[in-house]
């Protein structure tokens, strides 16, 4: 193992923290020069349990779906393979959905990764910057000849999660109290997650809606977003989708 002169303290410490086979950092000693192996194992365990508990709080529907025992065992594996990269615990679990998608024991639930994506997006929306959502009057005030080229700025909390499965329904019923009955999981559901004021809300988008919003959110003008949506879905209703994104609070500003 590299010594401290070659590796900063935190890096050497963290390196062993998530690799039990490597014992404790060489430079760590107990009081009066005693060994610190057991103390370090206690610390290592607390870090693991703390992160697993954080994941359980962030992904309650995912945990409910697979059961607590399975979730915690899977989460321990995730913690080992994906240690935190941020000091903020609330940032943790950004790639849990990707991990789930590749986790063989869950191959029978191809929709679970999308449910986890929605749960993470829910938390992102919750902690996003506050901003006043754009209202219909502001859109109405845009000169007609500028409309096609108008760029609409996404609200900081707005998130899209596209799914080929009924991820929003599965998320919703598992975040509620009460029984979870049979669900047709193969119906595609694209989710729009917003938090215009204090409360996070989630909506299912109509066909073409996700492409429309994706195009807008990536900074393309309204006309291009409408064209992209119509290209994917000829029955795309621009008026109803504009009404929907305003009502959901998905936009923050107009850039002309």
């Amino acid at each position: 193992m590299p010594n401290m002169r070659e590796m900063p303290y935190a890096e050497a410490f963290a390196g062993t923290l998530f690799s039990p086979g490597r014992g404790k950092p060489e430079f760590l000693v107990g009081p009066n020069g005693k060994g610190a192996e057991r103390r370090f194992e206690v610390y290592r365990n607390n870090v693991s349990v703390g992160l697993v508990n954080a994941l359980a709080s962030m992904f309650p529907a995912t945990q409910r779906i697979v059961g607590e025992e399975f979730f915690r065992a899977m989460a321990r594996r995730y913690v080992r393979d994906h240690p935190p990269r941020s000091r903020l615990l609330v940032e943790y679990g950004q790639d849990l959905a990707t991990f789930i998608a590749g986790f063989k024991p869950l191959a029978g639930m191809p929709w679970l990764a999308d449910v986890a994506k929605i749960e993470r997006a829910w938390l992102d929306a919750y902690h996003a910057a506050d901003a006043a959502p754009l209202v219909g009057e502001e859109l109405a005030a845009i000169p007609e000849n500028r409309l096609v080229d108008t760029i609409l700025v996404a609200h900081p909390a707005a998130r899209l999660v596209r799914s080929r499965h009924a991820a929003v329904t599965i998320f919703s019923v598992n975040r509620r109290e009460g029984e979870v009955g049979a669900i047709e999981t193969d119906i595609a559901e694209d989710a729009l997650i917003t938090r215009p004021h204090l409360d996070v809300a989630i909506r299912i988008l109509p066909a073409g809606g996700a492409v429309f919003l994706e195009t807008l959110f990536s900074g393309h003008p309204l006309g291009e977003a409408a064209a992209a949506a119509l290209a994917e879905c000829p029955t795309f209703d621009l008026g109803a989708n504009i009404a929907g994104m305003i009502e959901a609070g998905a936009l923050a500003d107009i850039r002309q």
Binding site: S172, R175, R176, G209
Partner: peptide
């Protein structure tokens, strides 16, 4: 709106 609010919202 054309958007369906999820029942669990």
């Amino acid at each position: 709106s054309a958007f369906v609010t999820a029942t669990g919202a």
